[in-house]
Design a binder for these strands. Structure first.
Lengths: 101, 101
DNA sequence: AATGCTTTTGACAATATTAGTCAACACATA
DNA sequence: TATGTGTTGACTAATATTGTCAAAAGCATT
């Protein structure tokens, strides 16, 4: 269940693009796009953004979901996954406070 | 700055193992262990646990830190990293509630 | 049925990434 | 010198990811 894939598929259909047209527009093989939408292959962030642009949609939420999926994939069904996420969050917040930019 | 690496280095020294002895004990090349402790190479979870065992330490916190580092590495300096972590957390919690085990 | 479009599938090659091996180096100390 | 410490870089091997292609399958329409 790749929510990014499903979301992008819906967006594509609403925007009236066939799989082929969309694939050509962002310069990838149609087979890859097909697989990505169905969660059989991973997206790259670049492609997510390109597709969002193509469909005239803001990409922020899609990117966030994309990253979230990536993180969850990395964690697998790890026993301490939740704890790890909380630690990671703390680190990020700490970093955010103590950096310029 | 790999906290897992530093933690394991301290633990090793406190446990009185030389790099070579520890590497032999867990059956890896000493060069790899050296690099891992200094954050030049990634650990695997298996090695973290093996080392914790060798040093007679509970591995839970180390594993959590290991996973956290892995996640943060994946996110890089992504603008929406924090948001992604929060989404991932929600997913995990949701999953935890709705599964047996 | 035949055409023309769609999407899916699998096989394969090309690339990139990661992991493992080894020898040499530098430093300290007995 | 000889022994033990940790570090470094070059190299190979193993794995994973990505890209390419052709064929197949689905679905309307003519």
């Amino acid at each position: 269940m790749s929510t990014v894939g499903l979301q992008l598929r819906e967006l594509r259909e609403k925007a009236g693009f066939s799989l082929r047209k969309a694939a050509v527009a962002i310069d990838i093989d149609v087979a890859i796009l097909s697989k990505m939408e169905r969660g059989e292959r991973k997206f790259s962030k670049e492609l997510v953004v390109k597709l969002a642009d193509l469909y005239k949609t803001n990409s922020d939420k899609l990117v966030i979901d994309y990253l979230s999926e990536k993180v969850l994939y990395e964690l697998g069904d790890e026993e301490f996954g939740l704890e790890a996420l909380k630690v990671a969050e703390k680190q990020l917040i700490y970093k955010k406070i103590n950096t310029h930019g």
